[in-house]
Design a protein around this nucleic acid. Structure first.
Lengths: 336, 336
DNA sequence: TTGAAAGCGCTACCAG
DNA sequence: CTGGTAGCGCTTTCAA
């Protein structure tokens, strides 16, 4: 725990020179900078966080608010947390967790105490009380996800509607006229902000392209695996020649299992595309084309915006959607 | 962002009185305390975090280091993060996330900068470089999980061996002489610290009680569901009359599905116990007896210890194991 | 290009 | 039981 004073002494300069040499906030002669850096490294100097906050009015901490709802999909959520945390470090920020009751109440607390320079909001619900909170506090806030009311907010997300449309387009381009959609359990469409956007994207693009869609929303819990296989069976009986999936990896596995059980091969007998998946669809027994979720893109963008706002730059409110990307792994071909 | 000065003025007292009235660190007349609290509430006063750290040499922040390994089981991990975060707030601490490369490097950084008062280590590997790091830094560190070399460390965890033994005992008590064990994929036994402890517990207690054990470690990935069902089939053919499970919820579902497919009912034809599960085994189609993981116990204990150490109390190094608890839901009965 | 020094807002010691 | 005040270790003016 060396202090700036000791570094200054060791380098034979004043403490302000040490501060400037290390922060780069004013020009320092190469020789001096070098001496300072050497001394700092030698002593293992790390500026005291508290002193820095107090004097510099910047904490280099972002709060990450995540309610951890019971129906949150843990693996996907984890990849968002990870991506945010990594992006934050690139901008020299640490992440402070606000969960459970503190997801909301903590926003007020940490902004009032000046503990954080910005707030990143995860796991956004259509009607989210953190929307009103973000307007009430004076700390820059960025939403990853799009709530109902976005007035004055800075939001970032994958363009799920475009992603869904892209999936439908690829299938329609290949000549499919009747496709099946396997979505999340019905309950997810009220609680979360993005499943409805995928559904809407599929429906609208299908209408535009003259493609018929049969949708299935297999349930949760114990019987899920069976539910999904029954849903796939119904879609096969319906005569669909392609499937668009927006569900978790276990559901993907179940779909593939049922196709195999029905003696259908991909893509010869059934084309399959995965929409907004955060897991690796290329390592399934049958690699699947996908439009990936890519939390890294949204999180990087969100953290970058938060950093700019924390620097006092003004950022235009609005919803920033990242463009979907199509990854082909050979699971789509023309229908038989 | 009211400051202590304004609160003092509003309450008609000195700033030191405000500080003491709010912290309770010296006795204050009820009348004065009341005036101060009213003024603070009215102004929405929240002590400035940076100033507090600098003057008080306490940050009220714990770092939580979690590498997010690729094979980390996300739902279980999330429940540990959540439990730690909630426990921390009860002790008036916030949680700072250290993930990815920062899980290790960050420990040094945040302790050198005085950003945190303590460190909680999650997702402990048998050979974990955070063990050496924790010895090199001067910030109190508590491990949730037990690494190979625990010399001088403060560790907290469920007593997995006792949990496994408890499961075997209950089955043996019911009269079972031949039981099946469904564990994690083989790879988990090298990477993680607790699966080997469960395996050891099962083996030792089975030997002690004269019970035969057939063990299965079904694989990962796409074909997992099928793997598990085949494993269960083998165990049935082996003539086991009871199963002890130490695997994730999807695997539990697959096991139940295979039992149903084989025409076996629980517990009449097959008794089943779940060991160290973090999910709710009582809401399966067949409720299962379990010895729950209960992250809350370990996390509460870990945070409590960290808080005491941060207060300067000396805490005896050593491994503190929490006692397993048996929850019966009617899935165990004597063999036919 | 460098140095001196004035705070940042609180905690905790020393008086009374 | 209460008030005054000296720092905590840095950042950032103001001077040179």
């Amino acid at each position: 725990m060396a202090k700036i004073h000791e570094v200054a002494e060791a380098a034979g300069v004043s403490i302000s020179t040490v501060s400037y040499a290390l922060s780069g906030k004013r020009s320092i002669s190469p020789a001096t900078r070098d001496r300072v850096e050497r001394a700092a490294a030698l002593l293992g100097y790390e500026p005291n966080a508290g002193a820095r906050m107090l004097a510099g009015r910047r904490t280099q901490i972002f709060a990450l608010t995540e309610p951890f709802r019971p129906d949150t999909h843990a693996p996907t959520h984890m990849s968002f947390v990870l991506a945010t945390s990594i992006a934050a470090r690139r901008y020299d920020y640490d992440i402070l967790l606000l969960t459970d009751a503190e997801a909301s109440a903590g926003m007020r607390r940490v902004s009032a105490s000046g503990l954080v320079d910005g707030i990143i909001v995860l796991d956004v619900a259509p009607e989210d009380d953190r929307v009103a909170l973000s307007r009430a506090i004076d700390v820059p806030t960025v939403f990853i996800g799009v709530p109902e009311d976005v007035e004055g907010l800075v939001c970032v997300d994958l363009d799920f509607e475009a992603a869904a449309a892209l999936a439908v387009d690829r299938l329609a381009d290949a000549g499919h006229r009747r496709i099946g959609f396997v979505g999340h359990p019905e309950s997810a469409y009220a609680r979360s902000n993005f499943p409805p956007r995928v559904r809407r994207g599929v429906e609208q693009e299908a209408r535009r392209r003259g493609v018929a869609v049969s949708a299935e929303y297999p349930g949760e819990g114990d019987e899920r695996h069976r539910d999904i296989r029954e849903a796939v069976r119904r879609l096969i009986d319906d005569g669909v020649t392609a499937l668009a999936l927006h569900c978790d990896d276990a559901a993907h596995s179940a779909v593939l299992a049922e196709l195999a059980a029905a003696g259908l091969s991909v893509p010869a007998d059934m084309s399959v595309v995965s929409i907004g998946s955060s897991f690796d669809t290329s390592s399934f027994s049958t690699p699947l084309d996908r439009i990936p979720l890519e939390p890294e893109s949204s999180c990087e963008l969100a953290v970058g915006l938060a950093a700019r706002m924390a620097d006092g730059e003004s950022v235009e409110p609005g919803v920033r959607l990242t463009e979907p990307r199509y990854q082909a792994f050979g699971s789509v071909s023309p229908p038989r």
